[in-house]
């Protein structure tokens, strides 16, 4: 067992050495001297604590905050405004401003393809934030735009998806004057 374990550890170290080489050591902090620990129980205990905290949070939220359930679906009565789920409201917001082909199809497809290609487009080998300002600024900009569009779509689009300064979320959806 002892020899087997030693062999295993030696093999692991060789794999790690190869990985470090592949990663261009000059651009990554050298962590080969960092303390090595056995992942069980410390690492697993941390994950366990995170999971417990999330469970407690979810149960508390679920006790005090009811999931929405409006009236039964009625294809004959369209609420105004009709909104997509919040994570698609950025797209809906774009749709209200740009031609549908562009906002509904070309733009999302472009973003998805771009995201998958990011590791191949970003030729900068460094991982240090100070050496990749352009990437971080571009990504920050992307995040800000997405969050802003979602917030606008959620809170500032009222009747007919027209701009509304009131927090729209709290007001009931209406169907031709009557509440749904």
């Amino acid at each position: 067992m002892a020899t087997e374990a030693r062999d295993r550890i030696a093999a692991r170290d060789r794999v790690e050495a190869r990985r470090r080489q592949a990663e261009a050591p000059s651009t990554v902090r050298d962590d080969s001297d960092d303390e090595m620990i056995v992942s069980f129980p410390e690492f697993i205990f941390k994950e366990f604590i995170a999971a417990v905290a999330m469970t407690v949070f979810l149960v508390l939220v679920s006790i005090f905050l009811q999931a929405p359930l409006l009236g039964q679906a009625n294809p004959g009565v369209t609420p105004n405004p009709s909104k997509a789920p919040w994570y698609f409201l950025g797209l809906q917001e774009l749709l209200s401003r740009f031609p549908p082909l562009m906002a509904g199809v070309a733009f999302p497809t472009f973003v998805i393809v771009l995201m998958i290609l990011v590791p191949f487009l970003d030729r900068n080998p460094s991982r240090r934030p100070s050496e990749r300002k352009v990437a971080i600024i571009l990504f920050g900009l992307y995040m800000v735009i997405v969050v802003a569009l979602v917030i606008i779509g959620t809170f500032f689009r009222g009747h007919e998806f027209i701009w509304n300064w009131g927090w729209v979320l709290g007001s009931p959806q209406t169907c031709g004057g009557a509440a749904c």
Partner: peptide, 17 residues
């Protein structure tokens, strides 16, 4: 409910473009 059917109508309408 009214929320789900119309949200999905709006969402799937994007696909038709």
């Amino acid at each position: 409910d009214q929320l789900s059917i119309w949200a999905v109508t709006v969402g799937t309408n994007m696909a038709k473009y």
